[in-house]
Amino acid sequence: MNQFFKSFKFKVIVCITAFFLGMALYSVTKDGKTSEGSQLIGTVLNPVKRFSNVISDKVSLVIDLFANSEEYVEENRKLKEQVADLNNRLIDYEDIKSENEDLRKFIGIKEENEDFVLSPPCTVISRMTNDPYGTFVIDRGSNDGIKLYDPVVTSEGLVGIITEVAKSYATVRTILSPDLSVGGLCVESRDTGIIEGSLTYASSGKCKMIYLDKNNKIKKGDLIITSGNSGQFPQGYVIGNVTETGIEESGLTAYAIIEPAVNPNKITNVMVITEFDKTENENQIPTGNIGEETTENTTDTTEPDSTDNTDATENTEETTESGEY
Protein backbone atom coordinates (compact mmCIF):
# COMPACT_ATOMS: atom_id res chain seq x y z
CA MET A 1 0.00 0.00 0.00
CA ASN A 2 2.99 2.29 0.64
CA GLN A 3 3.81 2.02 -3.03
CA PHE A 4 0.50 3.61 -3.84
CA PHE A 5 1.27 6.70 -1.81
CA LYS A 6 4.55 7.16 -3.69
CA SER A 7 3.05 6.53 -7.09
CA PHE A 8 2.11 9.00 -9.80
CA LYS A 9 -1.52 7.84 -9.43
CA PHE A 10 -1.63 9.12 -5.88
CA LYS A 11 -0.36 12.54 -6.96
CA VAL A 12 -3.00 12.76 -9.68
CA ILE A 13 -5.74 11.81 -7.18
CA VAL A 14 -4.47 14.44 -4.76
CA CYS A 15 -4.68 16.96 -7.61
CA ILE A 16 -8.29 15.91 -8.35
CA THR A 17 -9.15 16.24 -4.66
CA ALA A 18 -7.47 19.65 -4.56
CA PHE A 19 -9.53 20.67 -7.59
CA PHE A 20 -12.80 19.82 -5.83
CA LEU A 21 -11.58 21.46 -2.63
CA GLY A 22 -10.80 24.56 -4.67
CA MET A 23 -14.26 24.40 -6.14
CA ALA A 24 -15.78 24.20 -2.65
CA LEU A 25 -13.75 27.21 -1.52
CA TYR A 26 -14.74 29.09 -4.67
CA SER A 27 -18.41 28.31 -3.92
CA VAL A 28 -18.00 29.77 -0.43
CA THR A 29 -16.67 33.03 -1.81
CA LYS A 30 -19.64 33.42 -4.18
CA ASP A 31 -21.71 34.80 -1.30
CA GLY A 32 -25.11 33.50 -2.22
CA LYS A 33 -24.64 33.38 -5.96
CA THR A 34 -24.77 29.86 -7.30
CA SER A 35 -21.46 28.85 -8.84
CA GLU A 36 -21.40 27.95 -12.54
CA GLY A 37 -20.61 24.28 -11.85
CA SER A 38 -23.44 24.05 -9.36
CA GLN A 39 -25.77 25.74 -11.85
CA LEU A 40 -24.80 23.24 -14.52
CA ILE A 41 -25.46 20.25 -12.24
CA GLY A 42 -28.57 21.93 -10.86
CA THR A 43 -29.98 22.64 -14.32
CA VAL A 44 -29.38 19.04 -15.38
CA LEU A 45 -30.85 17.63 -12.16
CA ASN A 46 -33.87 19.95 -11.92
CA PRO A 47 -36.10 17.78 -14.14
CA VAL A 48 -34.99 14.78 -12.09
CA LYS A 49 -35.83 16.60 -8.86
CA ARG A 50 -39.18 17.66 -10.23
CA PHE A 51 -39.93 14.08 -11.24
CA SER A 52 -38.84 12.81 -7.81
CA ASN A 53 -40.97 15.39 -6.10
CA VAL A 54 -44.07 14.47 -8.11
CA ILE A 55 -43.62 10.77 -7.25
CA SER A 56 -42.93 11.65 -3.65
CA ASP A 57 -46.01 13.87 -3.32
CA LYS A 58 -48.34 11.34 -4.92
CA VAL A 59 -47.07 8.43 -2.82
CA SER A 60 -47.12 10.53 0.36
CA LEU A 61 -50.68 11.65 -0.35
CA VAL A 62 -51.97 8.11 -0.83
CA ILE A 63 -50.16 6.80 2.26
CA ASP A 64 -51.24 9.82 4.25
CA LEU A 65 -54.90 9.39 3.30
CA PHE A 66 -54.85 5.76 4.41
CA ALA A 67 -52.86 6.28 7.55
CA ASN A 68 -54.42 9.46 8.88
CA SER A 69 -58.04 9.34 7.73
CA GLU A 70 -59.37 9.43 11.30
CA GLU A 71 -57.13 12.34 12.12
CA TYR A 72 -58.46 14.24 9.10
CA VAL A 73 -62.07 13.65 10.11
CA GLU A 74 -61.25 15.02 13.55
CA GLU A 75 -59.30 17.92 12.03
CA ASN A 76 -62.20 18.67 9.71
CA ARG A 77 -64.60 18.79 12.65
CA LYS A 78 -62.28 21.13 14.54
CA LEU A 79 -61.82 23.34 11.49
CA LYS A 80 -65.58 23.63 11.07
CA GLU A 81 -65.85 24.77 14.66
CA GLN A 82 -63.01 27.17 14.05
CA VAL A 83 -64.72 28.58 10.94
CA ALA A 84 -67.90 29.12 12.92
CA ASP A 85 -65.88 30.85 15.62
CA LEU A 86 -64.11 33.01 13.06
CA ASN A 87 -67.39 33.96 11.44
CA ASN A 88 -68.62 35.18 14.80
CA ARG A 89 -65.47 37.20 15.24
CA LEU A 90 -65.89 38.61 11.77
CA ILE A 91 -69.20 40.15 12.79
CA ASP A 92 -67.34 42.22 15.38
CA TYR A 93 -64.64 43.10 12.93
CA GLU A 94 -66.36 46.05 11.29
CA ASP A 95 -66.95 47.73 14.66
CA ILE A 96 -63.33 47.31 15.63
CA LYS A 97 -62.27 48.63 12.25
CA SER A 98 -64.05 51.90 12.68
CA GLU A 99 -62.86 52.28 16.27
CA ASN A 100 -59.24 51.58 15.70
CA GLU A 101 -57.72 52.88 12.47
CA ASP A 102 -54.22 51.81 13.37
CA LEU A 103 -55.11 48.26 14.15
CA ARG A 104 -56.71 47.97 10.73
CA LYS A 105 -53.26 48.16 9.20
CA PHE A 106 -52.32 44.88 10.71
CA ILE A 107 -55.56 43.03 10.26
CA GLY A 108 -56.26 44.07 6.71
CA ILE A 109 -52.93 42.95 5.33
CA LYS A 110 -54.30 42.59 1.85
CA GLU A 111 -55.22 46.22 1.79
CA GLU A 112 -51.60 47.12 2.25
CA ASN A 113 -50.18 44.79 -0.34
CA GLU A 114 -50.81 46.94 -3.39
CA ASP A 115 -47.17 47.97 -3.43
CA PHE A 116 -45.93 44.41 -3.78
CA VAL A 117 -44.29 43.32 -7.00
CA LEU A 118 -44.63 39.56 -6.97
CA SER A 119 -42.80 36.97 -8.97
CA PRO A 120 -44.77 34.49 -11.04
CA PRO A 121 -46.07 31.61 -8.90
CA CYS A 122 -43.17 29.35 -7.95
CA THR A 123 -43.36 25.61 -7.48
CA VAL A 124 -41.29 23.78 -4.92
CA ILE A 125 -39.19 21.41 -6.99
CA SER A 126 -37.14 19.77 -4.27
CA ARG A 127 -36.36 19.82 -0.61
CA MET A 128 -32.84 19.65 0.74
CA THR A 129 -31.92 16.14 1.78
CA ASN A 130 -31.74 15.63 5.55
CA ASP A 131 -32.18 19.35 6.25
CA PRO A 132 -33.89 20.01 9.59
CA TYR A 133 -35.20 23.44 8.59
CA GLY A 134 -37.19 22.49 5.50
CA THR A 135 -34.99 24.43 3.08
CA PHE A 136 -36.31 24.00 -0.45
CA VAL A 137 -35.67 24.88 -4.08
CA ILE A 138 -38.17 26.73 -6.27
CA ASP A 139 -38.41 26.67 -10.03
CA ARG A 140 -37.86 30.40 -10.59
CA GLY A 141 -34.60 32.27 -10.51
CA SER A 142 -32.92 35.49 -11.54
CA ASN A 143 -34.51 35.22 -15.01
CA ASP A 144 -37.84 35.91 -13.31
CA GLY A 145 -36.54 38.92 -11.41
CA ILE A 146 -35.83 37.08 -8.18
CA LYS A 147 -32.93 38.50 -6.21
CA LEU A 148 -30.93 37.40 -3.21
CA TYR A 149 -32.71 37.92 0.14
CA ASP A 150 -36.12 38.57 -1.43
CA PRO A 151 -38.94 37.57 0.95
CA VAL A 152 -40.84 34.40 0.05
CA VAL A 153 -44.52 34.27 0.96
CA THR A 154 -47.83 32.56 0.38
CA SER A 155 -51.23 34.14 0.75
CA GLU A 156 -51.32 32.76 4.31
CA GLY A 157 -48.05 34.23 5.52
CA LEU A 158 -44.29 34.59 5.42
CA VAL A 159 -42.26 31.53 4.42
CA GLY A 160 -38.63 32.68 4.33
CA ILE A 161 -36.07 34.37 2.13
CA ILE A 162 -34.07 33.59 -0.96
CA THR A 163 -30.53 32.60 0.00
CA GLU A 164 -29.16 31.41 -3.32
CA VAL A 165 -30.18 32.40 -6.81
CA ALA A 166 -29.41 30.70 -10.08
CA LYS A 167 -30.87 31.74 -13.41
CA SER A 168 -33.69 29.20 -13.41
CA TYR A 169 -34.03 28.20 -9.78
CA ALA A 170 -33.48 29.55 -6.28
CA THR A 171 -33.01 28.20 -2.78
CA VAL A 172 -35.33 29.33 0.01
CA ARG A 173 -34.30 29.44 3.66
CA THR A 174 -37.39 29.09 5.82
CA ILE A 175 -38.30 30.90 9.00
CA LEU A 176 -37.56 27.65 10.86
CA SER A 177 -33.84 28.25 10.30
CA PRO A 178 -31.83 29.85 13.11
CA ASP A 179 -29.84 31.70 10.43
CA LEU A 180 -32.84 33.87 9.62
CA SER A 181 -34.09 36.53 12.03
CA VAL A 182 -37.28 38.44 11.45
CA GLY A 183 -38.56 41.34 13.48
CA GLY A 184 -41.99 40.39 14.79
CA LEU A 185 -44.88 42.31 16.31
CA CYS A 186 -47.80 40.96 18.26
CA VAL A 187 -50.98 42.47 16.85
CA GLU A 188 -52.96 42.20 20.07
CA SER A 189 -50.43 43.32 22.68
CA ARG A 190 -48.02 45.30 20.44
CA ASP A 191 -45.06 43.52 21.96
CA THR A 192 -42.10 43.15 19.67
CA GLY A 193 -39.29 40.65 19.41
CA ILE A 194 -37.07 38.76 17.05
CA ILE A 195 -38.36 35.61 15.44
CA GLU A 196 -35.75 32.97 14.86
CA GLY A 197 -35.76 29.31 14.04
CA SER A 198 -34.51 26.83 16.55
CA LEU A 199 -33.43 23.22 16.17
CA THR A 200 -35.58 22.39 19.18
CA TYR A 201 -38.77 23.56 17.51
CA ALA A 202 -37.94 23.11 13.81
CA SER A 203 -38.94 19.45 13.90
CA SER A 204 -42.45 20.39 15.01
CA GLY A 205 -42.62 23.19 12.42
CA LYS A 206 -42.43 26.01 14.96
CA CYS A 207 -40.10 28.91 15.61
CA LYS A 208 -39.26 31.09 18.56
CA MET A 209 -39.84 34.78 19.24
CA ILE A 210 -37.05 35.99 21.49
CA TYR A 211 -36.01 39.19 23.25
CA LEU A 212 -39.55 39.89 24.44
CA ASP A 213 -40.08 42.19 27.34
CA LYS A 214 -40.51 40.23 30.55
CA ASN A 215 -43.73 42.10 31.23
CA ASN A 216 -45.19 41.39 27.82
CA LYS A 217 -48.87 40.67 27.39
CA ILE A 218 -48.56 38.08 24.67
CA LYS A 219 -50.85 35.12 25.16
CA LYS A 220 -51.59 31.87 23.41
CA GLY A 221 -53.31 32.36 20.07
CA ASP A 222 -52.06 35.92 19.47
CA LEU A 223 -51.21 36.85 15.91
CA ILE A 224 -47.61 37.77 15.08
CA ILE A 225 -46.77 39.87 12.02
CA THR A 226 -43.58 41.33 10.58
CA SER A 227 -42.53 44.66 12.05
CA GLY A 228 -40.69 45.53 8.85
CA ASN A 229 -38.43 48.18 10.33
CA SER A 230 -35.30 47.10 8.50
CA GLY A 231 -36.89 47.10 5.08
CA GLN A 232 -35.88 43.50 4.55
CA PHE A 233 -39.46 42.27 4.91
CA PRO A 234 -42.73 44.03 4.15
CA GLN A 235 -44.44 45.45 7.17
CA GLY A 236 -47.48 43.74 8.60
CA TYR A 237 -47.17 40.38 6.90
CA VAL A 238 -48.52 37.44 8.88
CA ILE A 239 -45.93 35.16 10.47
CA GLY A 240 -48.01 32.94 12.72
CA ASN A 241 -49.76 32.42 16.02
CA VAL A 242 -48.40 32.10 19.51
CA THR A 243 -48.69 28.60 20.94
CA GLU A 244 -46.67 28.97 24.12
CA THR A 245 -44.93 31.65 26.16
CA GLY A 246 -42.27 31.61 28.83
CA ILE A 247 -39.28 33.29 30.44
CA GLU A 248 -35.77 32.58 29.16
CA GLU A 249 -33.36 30.69 31.41
CA SER A 250 -31.41 33.87 31.98
CA GLY A 251 -34.55 35.43 33.45
CA LEU A 252 -33.89 38.67 31.59
CA THR A 253 -36.24 38.29 28.66
CA ALA A 254 -39.28 36.31 27.69
CA TYR A 255 -39.96 34.17 24.64
CA ALA A 256 -42.94 32.92 22.70
CA ILE A 257 -43.22 29.85 20.54
CA ILE A 258 -44.79 30.64 17.19
CA GLU A 259 -46.59 28.28 14.92
CA PRO A 260 -46.04 29.77 11.47
CA ALA A 261 -49.16 30.45 9.42
CA VAL A 262 -47.47 28.48 6.67
CA ASN A 263 -45.80 25.17 7.40
CA PRO A 264 -42.72 25.24 5.15
CA ASN A 265 -42.59 21.45 5.15
CA LYS A 266 -45.99 21.17 3.50
CA ILE A 267 -46.15 23.96 0.94
CA THR A 268 -45.93 23.25 -2.76
CA ASN A 269 -46.34 26.74 -4.21
CA VAL A 270 -44.97 30.08 -3.09
CA MET A 271 -44.48 33.61 -4.36
CA VAL A 272 -41.48 35.88 -4.08
CA ILE A 273 -41.87 39.58 -3.31
CA THR A 274 -39.35 41.13 -5.64
CA GLU A 275 -40.23 44.73 -4.82
CA PHE A 276 -42.27 46.45 -2.14
CA ASP A 277 -42.70 49.96 -0.93
CA LYS A 278 -40.08 50.43 1.75
CA THR A 279 -41.18 53.94 2.55
CA GLU A 280 -44.14 52.44 4.38
CA ASN A 281 -41.74 50.72 6.67
CA GLU A 282 -40.11 53.96 7.60
CA ASN A 283 -43.38 55.13 9.14
CA GLN A 284 -43.57 54.22 12.74
CA ILE A 285 -45.89 51.40 13.59
CA PRO A 286 -48.70 52.81 15.71
CA THR A 287 -47.91 51.55 19.11
CA GLY A 288 -49.84 50.53 22.13
CA ASN A 289 -48.78 51.05 25.68
CA ILE A 290 -46.41 48.10 26.11
CA GLY A 291 -44.34 47.81 22.98
CA GLU A 292 -43.73 51.48 22.35
CA GLU A 293 -40.04 51.46 23.00
CA THR A 294 -39.28 48.07 21.64
CA THR A 295 -41.19 48.66 18.42
CA GLU A 296 -38.61 51.16 17.35
CA ASN A 297 -35.89 48.82 18.32
CA THR A 298 -36.92 45.75 16.48
CA THR A 299 -35.49 45.03 13.06
CA ASP A 300 -35.74 42.29 10.50
CA THR A 301 -32.29 41.02 9.94
CA THR A 302 -30.56 38.41 7.96
CA GLU A 303 -26.93 37.40 7.79
CA PRO A 304 -25.63 39.83 5.20
CA ASP A 305 -27.09 43.08 6.33
CA SER A 306 -27.36 42.59 10.05
CA THR A 307 -24.52 45.05 10.45
CA ASP A 308 -26.08 47.54 8.06
CA ASN A 309 -29.09 48.30 10.14
CA THR A 310 -28.69 51.81 11.32
CA ASP A 311 -31.52 51.46 13.74
CA ALA A 312 -30.01 48.43 15.41
CA THR A 313 -30.32 48.72 19.11
CA GLU A 314 -29.61 46.78 22.20
CA ASN A 315 -31.78 43.90 21.21
CA THR A 316 -30.25 43.37 17.81
CA GLU A 317 -26.75 44.12 18.98
CA GLU A 318 -27.12 41.48 21.60
CA THR A 319 -28.27 39.03 18.97
CA THR A 320 -25.36 39.78 16.70
CA GLU A 321 -22.85 39.45 19.45
CA SER A 322 -24.27 36.16 20.53
CA GLY A 323 -23.64 34.82 17.07
CA GLU A 324 -27.27 34.14 16.35
CA TYR A 325 -26.98 35.66 12.87
Binding site: F20, A24, V28, L45
Partner: peptide, 19 residues
Amino acid sequence: LIFDEASGKIFGYSSVMFI
Protein backbone atom coordinates in the same frame (compact mmCIF):
# COMPACT_ATOMS: atom_id res chain seq x y z
CA LEU B 1 -21.37 16.98 -6.59
CA ILE B 2 -24.79 15.41 -7.12
CA PHE B 3 -25.19 14.91 -3.39
CA ASP B 4 -24.10 18.49 -2.68
CA GLU B 5 -26.72 19.73 -5.10
CA ALA B 6 -29.43 17.61 -3.48
CA SER B 7 -28.56 18.43 0.10
CA GLY B 8 -27.75 22.11 -0.28
CA LYS B 9 -24.18 21.75 0.91
CA ILE B 10 -21.29 23.85 -0.35
CA PHE B 11 -20.70 22.76 -3.92
CA GLY B 12 -17.68 20.45 -3.81
CA TYR B 13 -17.74 19.73 -0.07
CA SER B 14 -19.04 16.18 -0.39
CA SER B 15 -16.90 15.56 -3.47
CA VAL B 16 -13.71 15.92 -1.48
CA MET B 17 -14.92 13.38 1.07
CA PHE B 18 -16.36 10.99 -1.49
CA ILE B 19 -13.07 10.97 -3.44
